[in-house]
Amino acid sequence: MSSFQISREVPRSAFVPSPVFVGILAVVLVSAWMTWTGFGNVRVDVFLLVVSGWVLSLTLHEYAHAIIAYFSGDRGVADRGYLRLNPLKYTHPVLSIVLPLIAVVLGGIGLPGGAVWVDHAHIRSKVKESLISAAGPATNVVFALLLAAPFAFGAGDGALVYSAGGITLGPHGEFWLALGALAFLQVTASLLNFLPVPGLDGGNALRPWLSAPYQRAYDLFAPYGFLLLFVLLWQSSVNVYFFNAVDWLSTAIGVPTDLGQIGLSYMRFWSN
């Protein structure tokens, strides 16, 4: 038995949400109320709602990996604290939290965040290994659909008012901008994570089905896949094609055109 593997009698406390997660959820709810009511500096409210909502989605993304791994045979994820919804447990705090937040704030891209270490020695099925990898981005898809649902039913139709003088905000427009921005980010995260790139969830879902030589080649490039993707998105025309795809997908699920990108711009309260 691996040193990482614990008894199948996992204590119930291993599933209790951490105080950090409860705090994040509280910030999401409070900032949502502040944004809806226009409390204080509403652009700061929008910033808090988008950032805390994004951290919440990062946490649930990694939790989805962990809970599927747990039921697939790796009970050690409970011992490593992955089932307590604590984002600080998901590997390196800079690469897992700070860098994705910088990308959200400055670039409007939902980069992959943390990572859950899974003991694959206890996963006995290629299908289960693929499901573990796909569970995270599937969570982003669910998030995107939930956030888009109010728009699909007509809510927020008057969030943006276009006129000869420019764009003004309708009733509770700031709230709908924040919701649109979060939906936009979830679409970017879903698209990025499902790409078959070594080291990302999409690539990891394909890896179990590769032959041994291709798996070795995959493992060689996996540590650099994220960095390559980061460079491509920031320094080439790939960025244009990527955001065109994101715009199309956002519109397809009901998020009004431009609402997400305008919301991301609006949340930068330090700029005009």
Rank of each mutant, 00 (worst) to 15 (best):
R124G: 12
A152K: 07
I262G: 10
L99Q: 11
V51C: 13
I167Q: 05
D247G: 15
R268P: 08
A115R: 12
G170H: 04
W54C: 06
A135P: 10
V28A: 04
S236Y: 07
G156K: 14
A115I: 12
V142T: 14
S2E: 12
I109T: 15
G202V: 02
V240T: 15
L232I: 08
A26Y: 08
V246S: 13
L88Y: 01
G136I: 02
W33A: 15
G260H: 01
G73I: 07
A178R: 09
F226N: 02
E62V: 02
A66Y: 04
T139C: 12
A181P: 11
V16E: 00
V46F: 07
L195K: 08
P213M: 00
S125F: 09
G158K: 15
D258H: 15
M1G: 11
S7M: 10
L191K: 10
G166R: 04
R75K: 13
V42W: 14
V197C: 01
V55T: 05
I253F: 10
A14T: 04
V197P: 02
V127M: 13
W36V: 15
A178G: 11
R80L: 03
R80W: 06
L192H: 07
Y224D: 10
D79I: 09
I253P: 12
A144V: 09
H65W: 01
W33Y: 12
L232G: 08
P171A: 09
W248K: 14
D247C: 15
W234A: 15
A217N: 02
L56P: 01
L147N: 06
L259H: 10
I6A: 13
S211T: 13
S130C: 01
A212D: 11
L147K: 01
G53M: 02
V116C: 00
F221K: 03
S237F: 13
L131I: 06
Y241P: 10
V161D: 11
F143P: 07
G38P: 08
A69T: 06
I67E: 00
A212R: 06
P223F: 02
L185S: 08
R43C: 13
V255C: 02
F47I: 09
G158A: 15
T139K: 09
F47G: 05
L101A: 11
D258L: 15
L83F: 00
L145I: 14
P196V: 05
G225H: 02
A245L: 13
W248E: 15
V255L: 05
P93W: 05
P196I: 04
P137R: 02
I24A: 04
L56A: 09
V16S: 03
L206I: 10
R268H: 07
G156A: 13
D79Y: 11
S236F: 06
R84I: 06
S125V: 11
I6S: 11
Y63R: 04
D219R: 00
P17K: 01
A32N: 05
G113T: 00
Y224Q: 12
Q186G: 06
N272L: 05
P17V: 05
L264E: 09
W54G: 12
D247A: 15
G166E: 07
G113V: 00
G254L: 06
R43V: 14
D74W: 00
P256C: 10
A164H: 14
L233S: 03
D258K: 15
P223S: 06
F39P: 12
A64H: 02
L111H: 13
L85V: 03
L88M: 04
S18N: 07
